[in-house]
């Protein structure tokens, strides 16, 4: 027993010391880290649901749903976060819906590792902006030809058709599953 204490007191003292040091560091920085994460979400929400001032977070069918309100406290619409398989790895995005649940107010890809220069163009505003204003009550389709807005179609990225299709699939899955369950609070 004496030998054990002699050999290991340093490990124990260091263990306790380091644990306290870490707990202190986390306590000091945690607020800021949470703030960073919230800020990232807030920015994404503001981009797909313009004019939003405050949000309420809920979970619907396993998806994170943010109810967006304007500065008067009126319901402006919903922002739903979802993810799905992409060409390389998973794609995570947020979809904005207007208050009538009939129109997509915007889509933003928040994380993807699609091929740089081809597939990762899904995050460019020039491409993902095509989703803005589309009909939320029908499927969004991908077309090779010039986009036909009346047909709810988005033009695929040249050389990255599959990345485009997967992105649309995720949007459609979100609309299918979550949209019918949304209710104004």
């Amino acid at each position: 027993m004496k030998k054990f204490v002699e050999e290991s007191w340093l490990v124990l003292v260091m263990g306790i010391g380091f644990a306290l040091l870490l707990a202190g560091t986390q306590a000091a920085l945690q607020g800021r880290i949470h703030e960073n994460q919230r800020e990232a979400t807030r920015q994404a929400i503001a981009e797909v649901l313009p004019g939003v001032a405050t949000t309420e977070q809920r979970e619907v069918e396993g998806y994170q749903v943010y109810e967006g309100f304007d500065d008067q406290g009126r319901l402006l619409g919903w922002v739903i976060e979802g993810s799905g398989t992409g060409f390389v790895d998973r794609i995570t995005l947020v979809v904005g819906l207007d208050v009538d649940k009939t129109r997509i107010t915007g889509v933003k890809v928040t994380s993807n590792v699609e091929t740089p220069g081809l597939g990762n163009k899904i995050e460019d505003a020039a491409w993902i902006g095509q989703f803005e204003g589309l009909d939320a009550e029908r499927r969004v389709d991908i077309t090779m030809a010039a986009p036909d807005r009346d047909d709810n179609k988005v033009q695929a990225i040249t050389g990255a058709t599959l990345s485009s299709v997967y992105t649309a699939d995720i949007v459609n899955a979100i609309l299918d599953t979550v949209r019918p369950k949304l209710e104004a609070p």
């Binding site: 050999e7 490990v11 920085l29 960073n36």
Partner: peptide, 24 residues
């Protein structure tokens, strides 16, 4: 004979601090 354990403990502690700092 406890030196490797102590090294690992020390390194992982300071890595956690560096990681928290970067995330903040």
């Amino acid at each position: 004979h406890v030196r490797i354990l102590i090294f690992t403990l020390t390194i992982s502690t300071f890595v956690t601090i560096a990681d928290l700092f970067l995330r903040a």
